[in-house]
Design a protein around this nucleic acid. Structure first.
Lengths: 209, 209
DNA sequence: TCGTTTGTTAACAAAATTGTTAATAAATTT
DNA sequence: AAATTTATTAACAATTTTGTTAACAAACGA
C-alpha cells in the first residue's frame, strides 16, 4: 500500500537493542527480537546475516556513546581544578542517567566474552592514556598552588567512575529487593549526584595542616 | 576399584560454580559443566534434576556467602564511629577480594531474571532494615558529639559499597582494555582499599567551621 | 512498461542443548 | 551371598534456536 520504507531495519535495531540490553547476548533470542519488532525472524537474517552481527552493531553503537560521553566530560575549560571535577562528575552522571542500562550491559558482555572487547581495546587504552596524562598534569599544577591535596589521576578517575556508575549497576538488585522503582525517583538520583560531588570535593580539599 | 565416593556431586558443583560465575546462567552449558567435571552429562541430571535446580543451589550458596560477609562487617564493638567504619570497609573489601567474581555474578543474574531474586527478597530487606537502623542511630550519636558530619545511613552505605565493589566489577573491562592481570597486582588492591578508607574518612570528618 | 533489484513470507533444515530412559555396574543391607 | 538401593553410562528424544531457501511481492530504473 504505502511505499517501501526500509524502516524495518530500524525497528529491528531498536528491538534488538532492548533485548540485548535487557538480557545480554546469551539471554537474547532472535525470535523474540523479531516478534517485538513485528517482523518475521527471517527479516532479521535478511538485514543482519547473523545474531552475532546484529549484536556487534548494537555493541559498537553502545560503546561509541559511552566513549563519546566520557570524552566530552574531560574536554573542559580553564576553571579551577576542583570546579572542573565537580562539573565533570555532573555531566558524567547525567550521561549515565540517560542510559542507565549501558554500563551493566558493557561490563556483562566483556566479562563473559573478553575477546569481543579486543576490537575496541586500543581505542579505549589510547583514550584513557590521554585523559590520564592531561589529568595528572592538571592535578600536579593544582597541588603546587595548594588548591588540592595530592592524588594519582588513575586513583581519582576510578573514585569518580565508581561513585557515579555503581548505583546504576546495582539498581536492579535494589529494585528487586525493595520492590520500588528508582526510575520514578528523581529525588534519589539528584541526591546521589550531590553526594558523589561532595565526596570527591572533600577528597580533593587539602587537609588542614 | 576404589569404593563409591559420592564426591562426583561435589566435583559437579565445583565445575558448575565456575561455569555459572564465568558465563552466567544463560551462557552456561550443562554439557560444558559435565565435561569440566569429568562426568557424563547424565550424571548432572541424576544429581540435580535440571540446569535450573543446579543453578539455584549455586545461587543460594553464593548469596549466602555474600549476606554473611556483609553481616559480619556491621557487628562491630564500641569503638569510635569513624574507626568502626574504617574497619568495616577493610573487612568488606577483603571479603570481596577473596570472591571477586561474586558481585558481578549476583548483579548480572538479578538484572536478567529479577523473579529469581524474589526468594531471598525478604531476607535482604529485613537485614538491610536492621543494619540501616542501627547505623543511623550510631551516626546520630557520633554527630551529636561532633565526631562526624551529618549523613544519611543509606547514603553512607551506598558510598561504601560503591567504592569497595565497583573496582571488582569493572575488573574484566580493565583487564580486557589493558591486557594486564589485576589478580597478580596485590599492590593495586592494597592501594584501592586505602583510598576507599581515605575517601570515607574525609567524608565523615566534620568540615572546619 | 519490462526487467531488475530489493523486501517479505512461510516453510524448512541444522545444530545445539536440555532432559530421559533402559541397561548395567557397583556398593550396601540383611 | 542375595536382594536392594545407589551410581553410572550410552544412546536417544524433545525442544529450542539459529540460519536457509525458494517463491512471491513491491518498488525502481531504464
Amino acid at each position: 500500500m504505502t511505499k517501501h520504507q526500509n524502516n524495518k531495519e530500524q525497528v529491528i535495531l531498536a528491538a534488538a537493542k532492548e533485548e540485548f540490553l535487557d538480557k545480554g547476548y546469551d539471554g537474547a533470542r532472535t525470535t523474540s527480537i523479531a516478534r517485538n519488532a513485528g517482523v518475521t525472524h527471517a527479516m532479521l537474517h535478511y538485514y543482519f546475516k547473523t545474531k552475532e552481527q546484529l549484536f556487534e552493531r548494537i555493541f559498537h553503537e553502545t560503546m561509541g556513546m559511552l566513549v563519546e560521553g566520557i570524552l566530552e566530560v574531560f574536554t573542559q575549560t580553564e576553571k579551577p581544578f576542583k570546579q572542573r571535577m565537580a562539573e565533570a562528575l555532573d555531566i558524567h552522571f547525567e550521561a549515565i542517567r540517560q542510559n542507565p542500562r549501558l554500563p551493566l550491559f558493557m561490563i556483562r558482555e566483556v566479562a563473559s566474552r573478553p575477546e569481543r572487547f579486543a576490537v575496541i581495546k586500543n581505542i579505549i587504552s589510547t583514550f584513557a592514556g590521554n585523559v590520564l596524562f592531561t589529568m595528572q598534569k592538571d592535578i600536579d599544577q593544582a597541588v603546587s598552588i595548594g588548591e588540592i591535596s595530592p592524588i594519582d589521576a588513575t586513583t581519582l578517575l576510578l573514585d569518580m567512575i565508581s561513585l557515579n556508575v555503581f548505583p546504576f549497576i546495582v539498581k536492579p538488585v535494589y529494585e528487586a529487593a525493595t520492590g520500588l522503582n528508582l526510575n520514578d525517583d528523581s529525588n534519589f538520583w539528584d541526591l546521589r549526584k550531590k553526594e558523589n560531588i561532595e565526596l570527591i570535593m572533600r577528597r580533593l580539599t587539602p587537609s588542614q595542616a
